[in-house]
């Protein structure tokens, strides 16, 4: 089923991923393929394994069995070692994880210089470019502690973009933000999607999923329960668990999501 065209277009392939926390199984065999330019939203109840799945992709979590393969979008090379994968996979965390002792600009310049061997001047230009793109250019000389949560998260997005990754992962990027600033971060992500960035996003923001996603995936109990285009997913879900989950989330119940 793998014709050469789709292989070239495929950015991420996960096969048979199994992961346990000690003896407790968290992921029970995940298969996922993401093509270039696709925007995938992953949702599910708390403890379903969705964050773990994302974190396995770039090796932040060790997994028992399965394969993960990332394609370098510029060279077409297939990468399976995490030290290579991490270059091509950008990640945005719930808690931003900006480096507090470095300025915003330095935060964005560090990885391109050290990992991609970019010259300092070029790294600087690149950083300024992406900071402008996420509309925090005026904060470039400040330190993370001086920025609001929404600004920090946008900086985190810019920092990941400076590495010019093949795919961006988002691990509940707006969950730790005040409601007022959630929109500014989502708007940034929508802008990114519109420019054709391949994205894999774990989020509870269903509005965002509907607007931007090519596919929405429900993970429950460590397995993919449903995978469909947003219209089908939200309007006519196939599985009972999907309906139950949507019922809880869309009715605004503060369940343990």
């Amino acid at each position: 089923m793998d014709d050469p065209f789709s292989l070239r277009n495929e950015i991420l392939r996960i096969e048979g991923l199994e992961q346990s926390y000690g003896t407790l199984p968290v992921l029970k065999g995940i298969d996922l393929r993401v093509n270039k330019g696709e925007r995938i939203v992953i949702c599910g109840p708390s403890g379903s394994g969705k964050s773990t799945l994302i974190r396995c992709i770039n090796g932040l979590e060790a997994f028992k069995s399965g394969t993960i393969c990332v394609t370098d979008v510029s060279s077409g090379e297939h990468l399976t070692l995490f030290k290579d994968i991490r270059r091509e996979v950008g990640m945005v965390f719930q808690n931003f994880n900006l480096f507090p002792h470095l300025s915003i600009l330095e935060n964005c310049m560090l990885a391109p210089i050290k990992v991609r061997g970019v010259k300092k001047a070029e790294a600087r230009d690149r950083a300024l470019y992406f900071l402008e793109k996420v509309r925090v250019l005026d904060q470039a000389q400040k330190y993370p502690g001086q920025l609001s949560g929404g600004q920090q998260q946008r900086v985190a997005i810019a920092r990941a973009l400076c590495m010019q990754p093949s795919i961006m992962l988002f691990d509940e990027p707006t969950s730790a933000l005040d409601p007022e600033v959630v929109q500014e971060v989502l708007a940034t992500m929508v802008g990114l999607a519109k420019e054709g960035m391949t994205m894999l996003c774990v989020t509870h923001e269903m509005g965002f999923a509907r607007e931007v996603a090519d596919r929405v995936i429900l993970i429950d109990g460590g397995r993919i329960v449903e995978e469909a285009a947003p219209d089908q997913f939200f309007d006519s879900p196939q599985h009972e668990r999907t309906r139950a989950f949507l019922g809880r989330v869309l009715r605004g119940h503060p369940e343990v999501v």
Partner: peptide, 30 residues
Amino acid sequence: IDKGQYEGAKALGLSSLTMYWSVVVPQVLR
């Protein structure tokens, strides 16, 4: 040091040496 600092550094592809030298140890010393 917050685990997230290590994760942020790793996710960017920083080598262990760079992670400790540029990200972690400066914070530890402070």
